[in-house]
Design a protein around this nucleic acid. Structure first.
Length: 420
RNA sequence: GGAGGGCUCGCAUAGUGGCCUAGUGCACCGGUCUUGAAAACCGGCAAGGGAAACCUUCGUGGGUUCAAAUCCCACGCCCUCCGCCA
């Protein structure tokens, strides 16, 4: 949630941010109006309540006629208080509903524009020149006995898959390598719940613009998380953190579930876009003034991982119109996918500043009271897309695939060979 | 799923309708004393809104009442036991 003080004192800043995102700037004025109404309702209620409190006290002390007179007055006051209270909560709710619709203030350094207006920050590694016809990951997966999309579709439908044999082993190797790397860097490994309550989903900002991509279990009112960012962010919900212990870094390993609504026809082949996958996610709680630096650290760990996979990739600064509602800035790492002749997003890191924390009520105790903490997240490895990148980039003409050095200790081999 | 016990400001506890706008102990912070420390003593010490007065919060949500931590109803979570179960 946006800071109400910023909104009141500097509405132009918020309007500009909304505009840069391609979202409603007039919402700012609606929220300000609702805030006025809310504040006057609070003042009215509190005045009546204070009067009731003092009157109530005198009732206890009074006797006889005096008492019945006071009681008379107290009764009418009581109904007034009740009315004022329900008016107050109604206006507060209306305000909150509107205020939640405003996205985080974009970082002024983020490139302004739509999805295509990203800025390339750097390109690392060079796409290989193949002296044979490169096979795509579906074909390689079949040859190696690693990926079975046909049976995935038979059992669960489109966008589901089985990882088998070396495919399954590769997932375990990637996860182990990622967790070990994160642990070395000081992250606390976490295996979180993946069914969460509406508050957790709402607090992390996934029930807004991203709501249609979230699986919901109606019978029990649970949500299936699309990323462990959700349970990791909500881990400290309603808590006050010790600022001397920051940054607090967690690496979550969990399945991720995505409905992929509105992506019909996109990436229908293979395992680039699927409903269920495993991911190791970095999550950091830090002081707001350290957030930008922490963001770069998360990006560096992502780069370190991709470097270890020996995959050519580029880093982009995502444009304002393509940021999630909680993020003020986002960097994507895009791996080169030979058979598509394109860079495709494999990992992504977002700086959510104090936006999520305000919704989730996570604070730091400081000199001048408490204030919201900053939260950041970044992908260390999203398994299927990394498998795609590894298989396609490291394939040989005979369909075998060289295993990156970093993964060899986890797999006990330096290459995957076709199964007969 | 069934039976019982519990949920109060970091922790532990007091509190069965108005001197509870919540007491006490521990922990913590500051001070006095001390060569230094400990002890002792003094003061501070939940959160949110507000310039302040003040208001809100005793698991959550309703209700009764002029007035609710306290009475009633529902729900949540934790603990113990029973049943089922990876």
């Amino acid at each position: 949630m946006i800071d109400v003080k910023t909104l009141r004192e500097n509405p132009d800043l918020v309007r500009a941010s909304q505009k840069a995102r391609g979202e409603s700037a007039s919402l700012v004025d609606e929220v300000l109006a609702a805030d006025e109404v809310r504040r006057s309702a609070i003042v009215e209620f509190e005045a009546l309540r204070a009067e009731q409190n003092t009157l109530s006290k005198s009732v206890g002390a009074a006797k006889g006629d005096e008492k019945s007179a006071l009681l008379e007055r107290a009764k009418t006051l009581s109904t007034q208080v009740k009315e004022a209270e329900s008016k107050k909560s109604a206006t507060e709710e209306a305000f909150k509903k509107l205020a939640l619709g405003i996205s985080n203030l974009v970082d002024e350094r983020a490139p302004v524009g739509g999805e295509a207006d990203f800025k390339v920050i750097e390109e690392i590694g060079k796409p290989r020149n193949f002296d044979f016809e490169a096979k795509d990951h579906v074909e390689l997966g079949k040859i190696l006995g690693a990926i079975d999309v046909e049976r995935g579709a038979k059992v669960s439908g489109a966008r589901f898959y089985y990882l088998t044999g070396v495919g399954a082993l590769l997932e375990l190797a990637l996860v182990n390598y990622a967790i070990q790397m994160a642990t070395k860097a000081g992250f606390i490994p976490v295996i979180p719940p993946v069914l969460v309550k509406p508050e957790a989903m709402e607090g992390t900002g996934f029930l807004g613009q991203a709501a249609e991509n979230v699986f919901h279990l109606e019978a029990d009112d649970f949500y299936l998380v699309g990323t462990s960012e959700v349970p990791l962010a909500a881990y400290h919900m309603d808590e006050i953190l010790d600022s001397s212990k920051l940054p607090l870094r967690y690496s979550g390993y969990s399945p991720c579930f995505r409905r992929e609504a509105g992506s019909y026809g996109k990436d229908t082949r293979g395992i680039i876009r699927v409903h269920q996958f495993e991911k190791v996610e970095m999550f950091s709680f830090c002081k707001p003034e350290d957030a930008a630096a922490e963001h770069l650290r998360l990006l560096n760990w992502e780069k370190e991982f991709l470097n270890a996979m020996e995959i050519p990739y580029r880093v982009i600064d995502v444009a304002t119109g393509d940021l999630g509602s909680s993020a003020n800035r986002k960097f994507d790492c895009e791996a080169w996918i030979p058979t598509q002749g394109a860079y495709r997003e494999v990992t992504s890191t977002s700086n959510c500043s104090d936006f999520q924390a305000r919704r989730l009520n996570i604070r730091i105790k400081g000199e001048n009271g408490t204030s919201p903490v900053a939260t950041l997240n970044g992908t260390l490895v999203a398994v299927p897309r990394m498998i795609v990148a590894i298989l396609e980039n490291h394939q040989q003409s005979d369909g075998s695939v060289l295993v990156p050095k970093a993964l060899q200790p986890y797999l006990g081999t330096d290459q995957f060979t076709p199964v007969s």
